[in-house]
């Protein structure tokens, strides 16, 4: 059997399984990014808060998450949390790998998104807040109707980058046995040793997914610009 045949045979055999893994990768990424944006918006606003406790708490969260590896965060939630609960309550507390994955990735992504929001909000000129307040809006109304809608448009490109980064980072989840894209590849190679076809296939699928996201971001960016101008 020549190399090409070997390659085609294994890639063909593993591909359906890889696609199923990719679906899981997309699910974890999309859910985590959604929660990450919610967490990140509040944490970003919190970092801008005048309340020192809120500000300190949000700052510590961002520092802790950005200063430690995602793999360790995933382990802490998947293995560490059940261990802690067992020690405290004496009850077993198994966590589903998918749930642990979404928790870990949401909390992780939230920290990066917080910084994106903070800088996005700070990039809106001071006069906007002043104009809103001068009309009698309170701080929350001014944020909601005036500052955040403008900040959102500006942070779409960095949010897109964060989405792509998170999508690639979910490959780490193979370490807790979540059968996402990489794990599916590993499972196939462990019985066939066909590493080269499998991992090039894995790469190709990641590339298609990230390119799709980045195209979509560019499209959104252009569309919002059109709205801004038309």
């Amino acid at each position: 059997m020549n190399v090409l045949e070997y390659y085609a045979k294994h890639l063909g055999a593993v591909f359906p399984s890889l696609l199923r893994g990719a679906v899981l990768t997309i699910q974890v990424t999309a859910l985590s990014e959604m929660f990450g944006i919610i967490i990140g918006m509040f944490a970003g606003l919190g970092k801008l808060s005048k309340n020192k406790i809120i500000k300190g708490f949000c700052g510590a969260y961002v520092d802790l998450i950005r200063g430690t590896p995602l793999l360790v965060q995933v382990f802490l939630i998947y293995f560490g949390l059940p261990n802690l609960v067992l020690q405290i309550t004496g009850n077993r507390f198994p966590i589903d790998p998918f749930v642990a994955a979404v928790w870990a990735c949401s909390i992780n992504s939230g920290a990066y998104v917080a910084e994106i929001f903070r800088s996005g909000i700070q990039s809106i000129e001071k006069g906007q807040m002043e104009a809103a307040r001068s009309l009698g809006m309170n701080k929350i109304q001014a944020m909601r109707y005036i500052i955040l809608p403008q900040a959102f448009r500006r942070i779409i490109p960095p949010l897109g980058n964060e989405f792509i980064a998170l999508m690639k980072d979910t490959s780490i989840l193979s370490a807790i046995g979540l059968e996402e894209l990489v794990r599916k590849g590993q499972l196939y190679t462990s019985s066939t040793f066909a590493s080269f076809p499998v991992y090039t296939g894995v790469m190709l699928i990641y590339l298609v997914m990230t390119m799709t996201v980045s195209r979509f971001v560019t499209y959104m960016e252009r569309r919002l610009k059109v709205i801004d101008r038309s």
Binding site: Q128, E130, A131, S134, M137, P149, Q150, R153, D228
Partner: peptide, 19 residues
Amino acid sequence: NKVRQGLGMVFQRFNLFPH
């Protein structure tokens, strides 16, 4: 916020909401 409702303000750089 109540007081400000009774005070209109016009700025040098307009500060209209661009969106």
